[in-house]
């Protein structure tokens, strides 16, 4: 019974998503919107299937760049977050710096990276790297800083060292926060990569879309957008799955959304 109910819910959701595209398709047809303004979903799919072999290296390029930047960003973000979340001084000094730094529009930073490292993959990796750091730091720091002192006291009264308390209480406690930030960070990482690719690269989906725009190949531009959205959703799902294994305790069974 419960299983049938789940399937029904999944099906309803899928239908709804499909419905959005159907409405898009019909609206374009009814209002006679030309392809150069807004291509229909079917046209986009056609373009996608026709040009996929051509696009594939760019997809891999963007994916690789994004993941590299993402992993670097998350690693640094985690370490910074651990420091900021467990020390008052670090909290007071690092926070204003971080907020200031992440308020800078990343478009403004890309030319600097190009100046330092030349155009290509490196600026793209760096852009997605710096764009990832902030949400991770903020969340990890919050998770650690909001750890209930009572939970720490349990370990302290056993004579645990600071490192043991961090390992057994602080880190597990911060996990749900960390995973929430990963979901934000992975989507941001794509933004960073594509941004840098658009400005200064001759490879990657961002570059493809840039060139397609200048030659008014709008269906190809939208194909690029589609691919980016797909990659984003796929990685989001991967992290959701890992999250459920590692930090599932934060979501009670009954409230747990099934993928």
């Amino acid at each position: 019974m419960e299983f049938v109910e789940k399937i029904r819910q999944k099906l309803a959701a899928a239908m709804l998503i499909l419905g959005v595209f159907v409405v898009w398709e019909i609206a374009c047809l009814l209002m006679g919107i030309p392809e150069i303004v807004l291509p229909r979903p079917t046209v986009i799919l056609e373009t996608l299937s026709a040009r996929l072999p051509q696009l594939m290296p760019h997809v891999l390029q963007t994916l690789g760049t994004t993941l590299t930047g993402f992993v670097m960003g998350v690693t640094v973000g985690m370490l910074l977050g651990a420091i900021v979340g467990s020390s008052r001084v670090a909290y007071d000094t690092a926070y204003p710096l971080l907020v200031g730094f992440s308020s800078i529009p990343k478009v403004a930073v890309v030319p600097i990276f190009v100046l330092w490292f030349g155009s290509g993959t490196v600026p793209a990796v760096l852009t997605s790297f710096i764009i990832c750091i902030f949400p991770v730091v903020v969340n990890v720091a919050t998770g650690l800083a909001t750890t209930e002192p009572e939970l720490e006291d349990v370990l302290k009264s056993l004579g645990a060292k600071k490192r043991e308390i961090l390992w057994n209480v602080g880190i597990p406690r911060a996990m749900p926060y960390f995973f929430a930030s990963l979901k934000v960070a992975i989507t941001l990482a794509f933004v960073g990569t594509v941004l840098a690719e658009t400005i200064a690269s001759n490879r990657g989906i961002g570059n493809v879309m840039m060139i397609a725009t200048s030659s008014f190949d709008v269906p190809l531009v939208f194909s690029g957008l589609f691919l980016l959205a797909l990659l984003g959703v796929a990685l989001y799902l991967v992290f959701s799955l890992i999250e459920r294994r590692v930090a599932g305790w934060a979501m009670r069974k009954s409230e747990l959304p099934t993928l």
């Binding site: 009572e150 939970l151 006291d153 349990v154 057994n168 209480v169 597990p172 406690r173 305790w249 934060a250």
Partner: peptide
């Protein structure tokens, strides 16, 4: 040590 709240680690 046991406290007024059970303070179980939820994970």
């Amino acid at each position: 040590m046991a406290f007024q709240n059970p303070t179980m680690l939820p994970w």
